[in-house]
């Protein structure tokens, strides 16, 4: 009978602990990892950083024969843009712009990365544009998009390279 009396307390403690842990985890994700989100039709689940670099440099423009890659990049000052420039492009802002101007004018790429002004806008466009890919805060990833692994690692997992 006594055992029966401690059960609600234990449940409450567990719930409180879960909430505390979940909150901790959520706080940790929002400040560190940047998730790679794509349209659900994209036939890819994992990308290496080299593949990511190839895609975002405009060297790979199709996911498959009829599915074009649409790059979505956050506008300047956003943290996700800094992560992309630093990790993927390995360029400064000026180099990035110069790179895409030259690529467009040399007709080496049909289109450059589209500017998005928020993670919500990015995820909304990723969900609406087949073949689109964007970098958003891992904590703001909606369910209607697909999160890709980077080097086989999902955001929040140990060794995730984009943060």
């Amino acid at each position: 009978m006594e055992h029966m009396n401690h059960r609600p307390l234990r449940i409450a403690i567990l719930v409180a602990a879960c909430l505390i842990i979940g909150r901790y985890v959520a706080t940790a994700q929002s400040t560190s990892d940047v998730a790679i989100v794509v349209h659900p039709d994209v036939p890819v689940d994992n990308l290496s950083l080299a593949e990511l670099r190839k895609i975002f440099m405009g060297d790979r423009q199709f996911w498959s024969s009829n599915l074009r890659v649409t790059l979505l990049v956050r506008a300047p000052v956003a943290r996700e843009r800094d992560v992309v420039l630093k990790t993927i492009y390995q360029m400064t802002e000026a180099q990035f712009r110069q790179y895409w101007i030259g690529k467009v004018f040399r007709a080496e790429a049909a289109s450059g990365p589209k500017i998005v002004y928020s993670n919500d806008m990015a995820t909304e466009l990723v969900a609406g544009i087949p073949g689109s890919i964007a970098f958003v805060d891992a904590s703001q990833v909606p369910k209607n998009v697909k999160v890709l692994k980077a080097n086989g690692i999902l955001p929040g997992e140990q060794g995730y390279p984009l943060h």
Binding site: T70, L72, A110, S111, K114, I115, E124, G128, I129
Partner: peptide, 22 residues
Amino acid sequence: NQTKAILELATKGDPLSQQMIN
């Protein structure tokens, strides 16, 4: 309405322009 603009361009404009140009 940047979202609509990008969405229009990415879903219609770019494929059409690519198709016409290429």
